[in-house]
Design a protein around this nucleic acid. Structure first.
Lengths: 140, 140
DNA sequence: CGTCAAATCACCCGAAAGAATGAGTGCGTT
DNA sequence: AACGCACTCATTCTTTCGGGTGATTTGACG
């Protein structure tokens, strides 16, 4: 919370600074007013986005990491692309046969992939696999 | 997507309009430049916040509502407490037998509960049940 | 060219899961 | 007392999962 206040203060300071600079340049150079206003608009749009994310973002970031795929976990555990696909469909509640149909492969193939997945995720049931995958940010 | 583009276009139009108005007032009245720049800043900060929420807000609200138990859904679908318990354990990746042990009931009982659960949730697999239950805010 | 990993598929087998049906018990309401 | 409802359990049967094993193909890399 203190950090947030500090950041707002900093933003305010930057605001003042920017305005000074604009004023200065406005007197010295001969660029149009619109240009500077455009700059200000751009800057404060960015600031607004940032503030917006700050405000609501907290819940978001903490509880829902907005899903940033964890590539590290994937490579560390040696999970292939295809396995990830299967994992994703699995998480959507599809049965192996349905996954097979969707990926245009045989049921056996899906089984193989899921088996490998289970061992790579150190689980033994698909429900656990889904859980763990979400914890590890492998799926949203 | 088209709607988003349209909204951006609208925002741009408003931007131009605002700048025209500022220009006009700048010539007619004698308020300071800083004041107008402040106005622009304010406006675009708001715009930025709005844009920021547009981008990330949707996912946030939908995906993670910080879990407030949806009692309405429960009663509407006629889901009992016991069924909810089973649902919860199910979502933790437990097998039916494990759930049975945890609740001190027989495997068959758990099966009955889960069967009823599936029909009440209009699904046919436990993975789907978990998904739907999360969507309906019946489990975290 | 040999090697290795990924992807594909097959077969077997046992364990879970799920569907269908029936039924007993306890508890609160009418 | 009679009724509905949640909870419990059982039995039977079918489907799906998951483990284990082995095989082929393809593409990348040294």
């Amino acid at each position: 919370m203190k950090k947030t206040i500090f950041l707002y203060g900093l933003a305010l300071a930057v605001l003042v600074l920017i305005m000074r600079m604009i004023e200065y340049r406005f007197l010295v150079r001969d660029l149009t007013l619109e240009f500077y206003i455009g700059l200000v608009a751009l800057f404060f749009t960015a600031l607004g986005i940032w503030v917006g994310l700050r405000f609501t973002g907290k819940k978001v970031v903490v509880i829902n990491p907005e899903f940033r795929f964890n590539e590290k976990e994937q490579t560390q555990r040696g999970i292939s692309k295809r396995e990830l696909e299967v994992l994703g469909l699995m998480a959507e509640g599809l049965a192996n046969q349905e996954i097979a149909d969707q990926l245009f492969v045989s049921l056996n193939t899906v089984k193989t992939h899921s088996s490998n997945l289970f061992s790579k995720l150190e689980v033994s049931r698909r429900t656990q696999a889904i859980q763990k995958a979400k914890e590890l940010n492998l799926i949203p």
